[in-house]
Nucleic acid binder design. Structure first.
Lengths: 318, 318
DNA sequence: GGCCATCGATGCGCAATCCGTATTAGTTAT
DNA sequence: ATAACTAATACGGATTGCGCATCGATGGCC
């Protein structure tokens, strides 16, 4: 098929004016080429699109049908060009975000909301991933960006911290320590702990265990469960205590109380992405997260003891 | 915009194969023109559609989006070509049929049904017209074909008879004449008549009045109404008698009975259309009506007295 | 580590296409 | 009958597009 977009545009102009001379003027060409292109189009279609006398031009039934189609097609092309350019600018497209449970309770919702309001034409596909699976998903390209408390960062992955919050203690409501507004971690030395399994959320696990060891005791771990909600739930049932990110205190459960902790370590949340990822939406998402991080930077620096595991990994993106 | 369908086809081939050489082979061209056309396309779009190394080609996000659009557009063009050709063949399109009330009771339903089953892609737009308005609608192009009992036929209109049926009498149920299965028109000489106004349905009006005059009496017209249903209704109420096309007897109304009439004149129904009308659907509709007319030809010739007003107008179409 | 194969980009010549000017043929209005 | 107008055709010049040949770069292989 040798039909050309030019022929469609010529045809539409002629269909609109029903006059070869005026249509040619509108197209900024002379009349003979228009006649020839229309004739060629009719030849290729094998269909007479116009009934012409030397005095007037009118459309055939097939002509008006083709006119409607041609307009649709030309508009589709124009729209395709615009949306493709928007895609390259990252103003529309698909962004696959892998997030961890702890991010879902803190930084994920406002960040996604902010980004979504700035880029409404981008399809943000959120999927929860286990912390240990995130890196692989990013490297293999199954996700464009992750939101998590980072653990090990393989080469090729970039990281941008955007949020930090202290650990806090969660205790059964009737527990003696629940009387005071703030407790010291050392006071939990003899309590049974409920924690995340190291294999599922190594960073958080390490943070909790580390906090205890720093205070000179090895926590007695009674239970491990990879859902933070379950931890709080089991604490509420009186099965033990735990240290969880402060944002978990949004969870209101009758039998559980949250208490801030002196010398609490910070839980950091940040974006992780593959340096090689060229999804144009990612750039804007990072910008968005960066300005979001600026707003929350006081939080990041409010932690009382020095650097987090990835304090040196605050990298810039290409 | 200078984007060409060829560029879309080249682009799609390359997107499918992700290999310049193989895509070129599939397109039956050599590799260099493909490289150049893709480069030109990217130049015109201002967007990189492929990431190429000298070892492998892959699509960018914008490239895959454009691919989806390009496929849609090419398919839209192919489909437009096919449907336009079908339109010219008259296999799809719009056919505006103007019909009269009397046709609606007899020939219209089976004819439309037959045509619709043969040409399901044609949009048959039915609209009722008053008999006196039909010719104007056809000449001005507001309708493609009319189904009616023809009256005057201006030059430029063609006619094809497809159906004929006798007049019959409609009487109040309690009327003495309702006792016999067949009556003579003369027996109605002293009855009050309910008829169509001459201005609305001149042909039918003339047929009824003419039938009476033929039997030597001038009917006493008590009422005129341009709805046949209303005529039957008023007869049922005992306000008079009438002569109506036999197909009206399908109308079952408690107080009205239909009786066949000796020496009844025939009501003819046929197609009327402008000779200059070039709607391709019309041709098939006429063919369809012609074969329908063949089936009903016995009816047409069963009338007992000679020619109808348009017996000489059984024309062929161009 | 050097060589070879593969692949996309580029240079160049030729052919096809397309446009514009000039003209023709046909139709309507005066 | 003539003038005015419109679409189609003829022809020359310019642009575009293709194929062949080649280049440059990359990855595999011995």
């Amino acid at each position: 098929m040798a039909i050309d977009f030019r022929q469609l545009r010529y045809f539409i102009a002629l269909a609109d004016t029903l006059h070869f001379g005026r249509a040619a003027a509108r197209l900024h060409i002379s009349q003979p080429p228009l006649s020839r292109q229309i004739a060629a189009l009719e030849e290729e279609l094998g269909v007479a699109l116009f009934k012409r006398t030397s005095r007037q031009v009118e459309m055939t039934a097939a002509g008006s049908h083709f006119h409607a189609q041609a307009v649709r097609i030309v508009e589709a092309l124009n729209s395709a060009v615009r949306s493709t350019q928007a895609t390259e600018r990252g103003e529309r497209g698909v962004l696959r975000v892998g997030f961890t449970m702890s991010a879902a309770w803190s930084v994920l919702p406002p960040l996604i909301k902010t980004y979504g309001s700035g880029y409404p034409d981008t399809d943000v596909q959120l999927s929860e991933v286990l912390p240990r699976e995130l890196n692989d998903a990013l490297i293999s390209g199954k996700a464009d960006v992750g939101i998590a408390f980072p653990w090990q960062r393989p080469p090729g992955l970039e990281y941008l911290p955007i949020h930090a919050e202290p650990l806090c203690a969660v205790l059964p409501a009737g527990h003696p320590l629940a009387q005071t507004p703030e407790i010291a971690i050392g006071e939990l030395a003899n309590e049974p702990f409920i924690t995340f399994p190291a294999a599922t959320a190594p960073a958080l696990h390490e943070l909790v265990i580390g906090s205890c060891r720093e205070q000179g005791f090895e926590p007695h771990i009674r239970l491990e469960t990879h859902l933070q909600q379950t931890i709080v739930n089991l604490v509420a049932e009186g099965l033990g205590v735990s240290l969880v990110p402060q944002s978990m205190s949004k969870m209101q459960l009758p039998g559980a109380v949250f208490r801030s902790v002196a010398d609490a370590r910070m839980v950091e949340q940040g974006l992780i992405w593959a340096a090689s990822n060229d999804n144009p939406c990612l750039k804007h998402f990072l910008d968005c997260a960066r300005s979001y991080g600026e707003l929350n930077r006081p939080d990041i620096h409010r932690r009382k003891r020095g650097k987090t595991r990835f304090a040196n990994s605050r990298t810039s993106h290409p």
